[in-house]
Write a protein that binds this DNA or RNA. Sequence first.
DNA 1: TTCACGAAATGAACGCCATTCATTTAGTGA
DNA 2: TCACTAAATGAATGGCGTTCATTTCGTGAA
Lengths: 236, 236
Amino acid sequence: MDAGASSARRDAAAGRARDSPRRAAGRPPQAVLSKAQITRAALKLIEADGYKGLTMSALAKRLGVAPSALYNHVAAKQDVLVLLEDHLMAMVDVSGFDGGQWEPGVRRWAWSYRDVFARHTPLIPVIAVLPVTNAPQTVAMYEAVTAGFLADGWPRDRIVDAIVALESFIFGSAFDVIAPPDIFETGGLAASAPEFSAAVADRWGEGETSRSDSAFGIGLDALISGLSARRASGGF
Amino acid sequence: MDAGASSARRDAAAGRARDSPRRAAGRPPQAVLSKAQITRAALKLIEADGYKGLTMSALAKRLGVAPSALYNHVAAKQDVLVLLEDHLMAMVDVSGFDGGQWEPGVRRWAWSYRDVFARHTPLIPVIAVLPVTNAPQTVAMYEAVTAGFLADGWPRDRIVDAIVALESFIFGSAFDVIAPPDIFETGGLAASAPEFSAAVADRWGEGETSRSDSAFGIGLDALISGLSARRASGGF
DNA sequence: TTCACGAAATGAACGCCATTCATTTAGTGA
DNA sequence: TCACTAAATGAATGGCGTTCATTTCGTGAA
């Protein structure tokens, strides 16, 4: 092996793109790309620059490859987003259901779900609309949650609706996390909205917990107690 | 007046672009554009083609204007989205609070809010993050809702959090409306997720109400009962 | 009345983006 | 051995949002 090849291997191990020596055209001796590598590179790119930095060119450059090479592994950029989504779903914490108690399980799941996607809000419009087929980690997450509901005695035919309701709240709340702190400052419009402005000014506890955390906590408590009350009363 | 001018006036009245006779360069005798006209044209464009059809070029063409002319009235495309957002906020039904009863007010508000933005989900990432300053209709909506909460005796310092919790649920649910009906079909992954697949198959009442409507109804009931229970018990 | 200035239009760019296609090379199964 | 397919390059495409020099019109101050 020559020096060029060895430095290339070092760069590849570090996830960096090979810089100087352009690869010749034609299929390379050993595959340079894979879906897993594309996913990893996309994540790194997002960590560094946010979703505005996630372009097919940037992705290709980071992988040391021409942009068109990516299309041998994904049909479109949308596919990259799907890869990301499924990867992130595996990071949602469903371990809270292991204890056999529904409420702590839901609580831990919901907080972690929100936290994961608050840093990936551009994926939410994709997830919310994407069929789960071919998203194995996503299905695994739903399976664990469903099992947690069943273990608590939930009627099978109501579980999906309950999960969807919680999930909708979680997605919406993820957006709220990235809202600026002054989002409700009425500014010049204060005079036209005295009650609302007062409510914004009086808002309680701007101490340790953030605005979005406190709203999420209140809503999650309400959802959990509302759902379990309905179940207990036979509303389902 | 000549025939050209009169046909131009007719076209302008119908909101259509003047087609053939290109306007000469330079400031026209009477203004061709305004924020209100831009907003109307954008709405028409979205009705016809969806948000993918909302481009600055298409907007300009519909207004019978060069694309660059738009930038005399908005600083960027984002501003067009803000104009749309504020316009749509005025269509959210807050009349339910007029009766002086909190629960029916919240219910009507929430359903109408969701319905309006289910057809405009691309705006949600914008709204959720946008300061309300300079969005008068948006502030007016919040003012009406706040008044409804106050009339019910809610403590002022808890109202914003409650509204945000409800709103997060509403935004998330708006995405759910546009999800395909088979979004939870596990397909080839069914074997790996038996409980979830069964729950999806057993889902109740696919009769009159849609999947997303039933999930929204369940979640909204839970939120409303959970929130008012906490308020009644002095949790706030 | 004049005239400088700002507002509002045109049209020609610009850079970026996702994607496609012809081409080349390497591995694979018949 | 050889046809076929997979996986890379590199050039090209069309569309996007946006900018800028230029032109024209309206307006308020001198």
